[in-house]
């Protein structure tokens, strides 16, 4: 495959054909935020915080999964893009429950950091029933606090495509979607061993290492 010429934020860039907008931007020092993308893996395209404007397109495009094309003119930081990302971050904060503010790990939370980068404060949206699941501490390797989950699916992806254990899937539909194990039951030590990859990739505090007793 050859190279194509694109324009990102006014900069003329020459990139390998077949790369995604995100790859083209990253290679040229342009930062586009992501919450669901795992470098080197097939993109998920679910979180939508990486959307960018592409001239000629009615809708914005997910940078993580849209391949570049010759002559593409991309705006990754236009006021419209920023406004849309802010609403998406605010939506993620709305239904997400947990004690992030008091959490000493807050600076490790990608959602928390993105919210502060985009100056999104306390959300002013409401949902009828915020997601609330009791924290699950039965597994010796992974503590699951699904109330903090933002359904980015990185854990499902890494467990299936990288570690090849496939113990996690998405269950239910729409707002009620949830990462499930087995018959939607606690993650057992037989199913999930100590690879800890999902913890490494979880952008929030939904998955963490249990405190050693």
């Amino acid at each position: 495959m050859g190279n194509v010429n694109v324009n990102i934020d006014g900069r003329k860039i020459r990139v390998r054909e077949g790369s995604t907008i995100l790859e083209a931007a990253t290679a040229n020092g342009i930062t586009i935020p992501t919450l669901c993308h795992i470098k080197g893996q097939v993109p998920s395209g679910v979180c939508r915080v990486c959307v960018v404007e592409v001239e000629g397109s009615k809708t914005m495009m997910g940078a993580c999964h849209t391949p570049v094309a010759e002559g593409m003119v991309i705006h990754s930081k236009s006021p419209k893009v920023i406004a849309v990302r802010k609403v998406i971050v605010e939506l993620l904060l709305t239904a997400h429950t947990g004690d992030c503010v008091n959490d000493s790990n807050a600076e490790n939370c990608a959602l928390h950091n993105l919210a502060s980068d985009y100056e999104v404060g306390a959300p002013h949206f409401n949902v009828r029933n915020p997601r609330f699941y009791p924290a699950e501490e039965s597994n010796p390797y992974v503590k699951r606090d699904m109330s903090k989950c933002i359904l980015c699916r990185k854990c499902v992806k890494v467990c299936g495509e990288v570690v090849r254990k496939d113990v996690l899937s998405i269950g239910y539909r729409g707002f009620k979607s949830k990462v499930v194990s087995g018959f939607d039951e606690a993650l057992t030590a037989e199913a999930c061993r100590d690879c800890l990859k999902c913890i490494e990739h979880c952008p929030t505090g939904a998955l963490s290492a249990p405190a050693r007793v």
Binding site: R48, A95, G174, F175, K176, S177
Partner: peptide, 10 residues
């Protein structure tokens, strides 16, 4: 809503 992407699900 299938629940896959943030804007539609939330």
């Amino acid at each position: 809503s299938c629940g896959k992407c943030t804007p539609c699900r939330e």
